[in-house]
Design a protein around this nucleic acid. Structure first.
Length: 389
DNA sequence: AAATCGGGGGG
DNA sequence: CCCCCAGATTT
């Protein structure tokens, strides 16, 4: 089967899909605007993220950064704070970089076609297609996970959908099908169908406007599609975390600019190797412990507190488990309470702040919600509260 | 082509 | 427990 053979039914499919969409479409915030910037924001947030999750973030983000200029003028710190909890934080950094690119290179106006949009940081082929078609009426496809599922079922496409060949074929197929007017409506209708009717596990084919043209439905084989390649297994890592506190305040550091949870705040810590991950708390000698601490916290002023803390008995807490898409953290933590050392703590804290005003900060437990703290560490904060009460 | 990069929803 | 989600980028 090739795209040319599919063209014959194209117009019929299109009108049935669009009629269904006008009747059944959800009332979503980004469907009330023609503002290309707002549509951009929605498309980036919706990458690998469900509609329900995105909505409150979308509203808050646009309220705080209502235009490209204001996003470009903001600090990365503030953008990440608004983004925190949404995940895939490179999206936020790249959108911020993209806003600066648009202000510097495009006179502050959003690029208006697919090829130009592709040049913006964080905008790939899907997002470029979505913005170009929805905001600017350009006749291009926007192939996301929903569309892959719908089309693979329509065609009973038996190859893995991640391949270049599949994408090329689906793009040709869709472009032969897409009407000349309102390509953005057509693209959204396909995604809406995948999100609400042609769902992964229990598609409602009885409500599908395309059922009579769907090879998957007609053959009864729709659950075999889309075919996907196997995924890599998740790796387990034990993370030793240091909760340095003084009264109501805790000490945080900024994570590196690249990699996991880039640029976000965290309780300092190290990833352990050679310790059993399956059981509860690993046994760590005093020497090891101090070594880990010195690796995690690049200021030496707390070391004396660590020494004395070690003399007070068991200090490890947890574990709590936290899963990322490709990593599993077993988080254990040690509480280093500086309020035991009333006389020396103030100077220590002062020095830490002066030396690492970019990298380290003190913050009260209740203010943890106000900064870019990964959800993984909010779990520790919750444990802290529970242990107190 | 495979790996990396979060967090939440739903079976 | 698993898989999935309006993916992009790097290796």
């Amino acid at each position: 089967m090739d795209a040319a053979n599919d063209v014959a039914v194209g117009h019929d499919l299109s009108s049935q899909l669009l009629t269904w969409y006008e009747r059944e479409k959800r009332d979503l915030p980004w469907r009330k605007t023609g503002n290309p910037y707002a549509i951009w924001v929605s498309e980036v947030m919706l990458q690998q993220t469900q509609v329900k999750t995105v909505i409150p973030y979308y509203e808050r983000f646009l309220k705080l950064f209502p235009s490209v200029d204001q996003l470009a003028a903001a600090s990365l710190e503030d953008v990440l704070t608004v983004w925190s909890g949404l995940g895939y934080y490179s999206r936020a950094r790249r959108m911020w970089e993209g806003a600066r690119y648009i202000c510097d290179q495009c006179g502050g106006r959003m690029p208006e076609n697919y090829d130009s949009l592709l040049l913006v940081p964080g905008i790939g082929r899907y997002t470029a297609g979505a913005i170009a078609s929805i905001a600017f009426g350009q006749r291009v496809a926007a192939i996301d996970g929903n569309v892959l599922r719908v089309v693979s079922r329509l065609l009973t496409w038996s190859e893995p959908v991640e391949t270049v060949r599949t994408h090329r074929h689906f793009n040709d197929y869709l472009m032969a099908w897409q009407p000349a007017s309102q390509p953005g409506i057509f693209n959204q209708a396909l995604m809406e169908l995948g999100a609400t009717v042609c769902t992964p596990s229990k598609p409602e084919c009885s409500h599908c406007p395309l059922a009579q043209d769907c090879q998957g439905y007609l053959s009864g084989d729709f659950l075999r599609y889309p075919v996907k390649k196997p995924k890599a297994k998740r790796q387990e890592v034990t993370r030793l975390t240091f909760v340095i506190r003084r009264g109501n305040q805790v000490y945080l550091q900024r994570r590196p600019e690249q990699g996991l949870l880039a640029n976000l705040w965290e309780f300092p810590g190290v990833e352990l190797r050679g310790h059993s991950t399956k059981e509860g708390l690993p046994s760590i000698s005093y020497e090891e412990f101090l070594g880990f601490f010195q690796k995690a916290v690049p200021v030496r002023t707390f070391d004396e507190c660590i020494r004395k803390q070690c003399e007070l008995g068991p200090i490890l807490h947890g574990p709590v488990w936290y899963t990322f898409s490709h990593r599993l953290w077993k988080i254990i933590w040690a509480i280093v309470d500086l309020s035991i050392y009333e006389q020396i703590a103030p100077s220590l804290i002062k020095e830490a702040n002066e030396n690492y005003e970019e990298k380290g900060c003190w913050i009260s437990v209740q203010d943890l919600a106000l900064i870019a703290l990964p959800v993984a560490f909010k779990a520790i904060a919750e444990e802290l509260k529970n242990e107190k009460s």
